[in-house]
Amino acid sequence: MSALLSVQGLTVRAGGKTVVSDLSFSIGSGERMGLIGESGSGKSMTAMAITGLLPPNISVTGSIVLDGQEIVGTEDKHLNRLRGVATAVVFQEPLTALDPLMKIGKQIAEPVRRRLQREQGRASRQAVGREVLDLLDKVALPQPERIANAYPHEVSGGQRQRVAIAMALACRPKLLIADEPTTALDVTTQAEILKLLDGLVRETGMALLFISHDLPVVAEVVQRVMVLRDGIALEEGAVIDVFANPSHDYTQTLVDAARMFDEALGRTGS
């Protein structure tokens, strides 16, 4: 399996503090991988480094090769061509991930228009509109026409996250980065969004980098996980192995904590 994303010795420093140190991993095309760790462990920083969108005052060293293109140290305007084609991101907070003053349909239309332009050289208004409704339908939003004409504050949190996913899908990226996509949602909605993401990833064959602090959530959608603490990778392996036989004490603590939390909530199995 050729690696779609290959991270080698990634080190991120912000304000004299090392946030991520010497991180290496790779994701093959169509592969689903999870990045686990508590807040501040450098998960999101790693994701942002992959998109090449970290602010200039944060230093990134090492190598990130995405779809054959080195990200670290490459000028922004070259990366721009890669964005949307290679990666798209779904964020934790669906309210801030959508422009509050732009109708939902218009927000999704923008990446759709760019993709059609790229693929077919032109993007007619009708083609874009059809595609937008298609995408809204794909993320299982009821009444796509109504949602497309609504502003983000007019739909529910779960619906907003579906819109955000539709926006990410609009680019048809090879790698979807989901940065805690279910953390801000309630448990029922969480399960629905996970199911949706899982189905879409399998259906479209895109690779997935799933970032979360929630072990059971990660276990549901990915094949491989990597556990991060304080910017250091503690262990990596297939989901079943890591959860069944954690080789590191920290992972064991995380697994135990998740289990205790589940028991406290009365959830069965994970």
């Binding site: 721009n80 061509r81 923008e110 990446p111 955000a164």
Partner: peptide, 12 residues
């Protein structure tokens, strides 16, 4: 976030 989301989808 929506700025970053827009940037990741390739907006200049």
């Amino acid at each position: 976030d929506y700025i970053i989301a827009s940037r990741t989808s390739g907006t200049s």
